[in-house]
Design a protein around this nucleic acid. Structure first.
Length: 108
DNA sequence: GGCGTGACTTGAA
DNA sequence: ATTCAAGCCACGC
């Protein structure tokens, strides 16, 4: 039941992001075999409203909270990340590389 | 049913 | 090293 559709796949992967870790849209897209369709991941996140998907743990490839503006609050996304022990300065994750979680690498 | 937009990424100049 | 352009596909008008 691994593959049903791209969106559900994104949700499943995003749900598996460990606490205090973050990943990028491209990493998820690539893991799903759609490396060039990173935007679809973002769009999926937009539709993740009502799901158990920790969208705040998903940022762009350089660790910038590009989607923070889509959250209810202005700093909600940053607040959530900081709450998990992730340092965020000016919408950018500090030591992003150390907090990065690659599904293709962690999940296999 | 066509056009533009968008939570992005990669590759080339 | 940085900057520019193209690609990807779903959704709204």
């Amino acid at each position: 039941m691994e593959e049903q559709n791209f969106f559900d796949n994104v949700y499943e992967v995003a749900k598996q992001i460990p606490y205090g870790r973050v990943t990028s849209y491209g990493a998820i897209a690539k893991y799903l075999g759609a490396a060039r369709s990173a935007r679809m991941v973002g769009w999926a996140m937009n539709n993740s409203s009502g799901k158990d998907v920790p969208a705040h743990r998903v940022v762009n490839r350089i660790g910038v909270l590009t989607g923070k503006h889509h959250f209810d609050g202005t700093n909600l996304m940053q607040q959530l990340l900081e709450n998990e022990g992730i340092e965020v300065v000016d919408n950018q994750i500090v030591s992003f590389k150390e907090h990065f979680w690659d599904p293709a690498k962690e999940l296999g």
